[in-house]
């Protein structure tokens, strides 16, 4: 039930947006993410976009995980 899937916003309307989830298009509510823009990725739960995925932070996380993975081999 808590499964949230990343979806790409294709069109934005007043209270909803058309999103693409792994190839299929659905309409989701955007009341919780009024700042969302076309092209953004959102986490969808039970028909509502709950959060916009922040690209900058996603990149930083990956860099951190890569560093973690490669670190300490000299320990």
């Amino acid at each position: 039930m808590c499964v949230g899937v990343p979806a790409k916003v294709i069109e934005k309307y007043e209270y909803s947006a058309l999103v693409d989830v792994m190839g299929s298009q659905i309409t989701v509510g955007i009341i919780f993410v009024p700042e969302v823009e076309v092209g953004d990725y959102v986490i969808v739960h039970a028909g509502q976009a709950m959060s916009v995925i922040d690209e900058e932070n996603a990149k930083l996380s990956i860099e951190e995980w890569r560093r973690l993975a490669d670190a300490g081999n000299s320990e």
């Binding site: 990343p6 995925i53 690209e55 996603a58 990149k59 990956i62 490669d70 300490g72």
Partner: peptide, 24 residues
């Protein structure tokens, strides 16, 4: 962005992190 999201499930990165988890 999609490439970044793909990294979240990268098998190579997962394997390395798994070893880190085991070590600690």
């Amino acid at each position: 962005m999609q490439e970044i999201l793909n990294e979240f499930s990268s098998p190579q990165l997962s394997r390395k992190l798994l070893e880190k988890v085991k070590e600690s």
